[in-house]
């Protein structure tokens, strides 16, 4: 029963809605008119989707076309702003000789690790704060200051401390999300209805059992929602880290392109970053909805 209930929750999905309604229609003995209205409804939804997609295509094609045109007609300086055709040509070249693949691999690896470490560390820190009210109160102002601080400003110090390598860059990807994760999850812990703990304590539960059975699972939705924010933050930390270390990765390509005045390279790197950041975001979104389904 619960499973059925959960499946029908996904109402945005048209095929699911249709599936459900077919079943509903059979159960209800609907008239021809109902059927007609329903078809009309589905038709309208599909129509709307097509229109939105059409405009989305118009914008991207228009933008690229205009850019190309402006560059060829020298309305904008082609040396500074490059052009779509140059960027595509460069990307094709870099992918076919394989030189960009290593940079992409390095950046993606650093971002994924930074994201995972930052999130896990945030959860751990929040959990440790929960163990003692006094400890949490003592830490409060430090957390506020650390949170307000622009973490990328710590970059040089991290690089000095850890040496200019993957470690420092991953640390930057992690440190940028760890404090905000701690704060968000800890306040999630505190908002859990204390009566769940009461129920557990009436059975003689220890503090750890209360955490495991009530506090942690009740806060799972909050933790899951921090994932999407953190993945974006980790990109920022890693790209800035690569700017500073200047050895490898997409951030390095941007800085390098800038230094040798190759703006086609800068733009091409940006395009690759945009594609991979969006991809990672989508993957995290998928993981998120999968986790929510599992957790609830």
């Amino acid at each position: 029963m619960a499973k059925k209930y959960k499946k029908t929750r996904d109402e945005s999905h048209i095929s699911a809605a249709r599936h459900r309604n077919e079943k509903g229609l059979k159960d209800m003995k609907t008239t021809k008119e109902d059927q007609h209205l329903y078809n009309q409804y589905i038709h309208d939804i599909n129509q709307e989707r097509k229109i939105v997609l059409f405009w989305q295509c118009i914008i991207i094609i228009g933008f690229i076309g205009l850019w190309e045109l402006a560059s060829r007609m020298a309305w904008i300086d082609p040396l500074l702003f490059s052009s779509p055709s140059h960027i595509v040509a460069l990307l094709v070249e870099k992918f076919s000789d394989g030189s960009i693949v290593r940079h992409i691999g390095v950046t993606v690896m650093e971002t994924v690790l930074g994201f995972i470490i930052g999130t896990l560390l945030g959860v751990l820190l929040a959990s440790s704060l929960w163990t003692s009210k006094r400890y949490a109160n003592v830490m409060d102002p430090y957390l506020v200051v650390l949170n307000a601080m622009p973490k990328v400003a710590l970059g040089p110090i991290i690089i000095v401390a850890m040496g200019p390598g993957y470690g420092a860059i991953i640390a930057m990807g992690a440190i940028i999300s760890v404090i905000i994760t701690t704060i968000v999850i800890f306040s999630g812990f505190r908002e859990v209805d204390p009566n769940y703990e009461k129920v557990l304590k009436s059975f003689g539960a220890t503090k750890w059992q209360c955490f495991k059975e009530a506090i942690f699972p009740a806060t799972l939705p909050v933790m899951i929602s921090t994932l999407k924010v953190n993945v974006g933050l980790s990109w920022v930390g890693v790209i800035v880290g690569e700017f500073l270390v200047s050895k490898e990765g997409l951030g390095y390509l941007i800085v390098y392109g800038f230094q040798v005045f190759d703006f086609t390279l800068v733009m091409a790197s940006l395009v690759v970053i945009a594609v991979f950041a969006a991809l990672m975001y989508k993957i995290v979104e998928k993981i998120e909805s999968w986790l929510i389904k599992k957790a609830t």
């Binding site: 009566n195 769940y196 009461k198 129920v199 009436s202 059975e213 699972p217 799972l220 957790a295």
Partner: peptide
């Protein structure tokens, strides 16, 4: 001591 609270507080998950 078994205590049934005024509200049910079943764990939704």
């Amino acid at each position: 001591i078994g205590y049934m609270l005024q509200q049910d507080y079943l764990f939704p998950w």
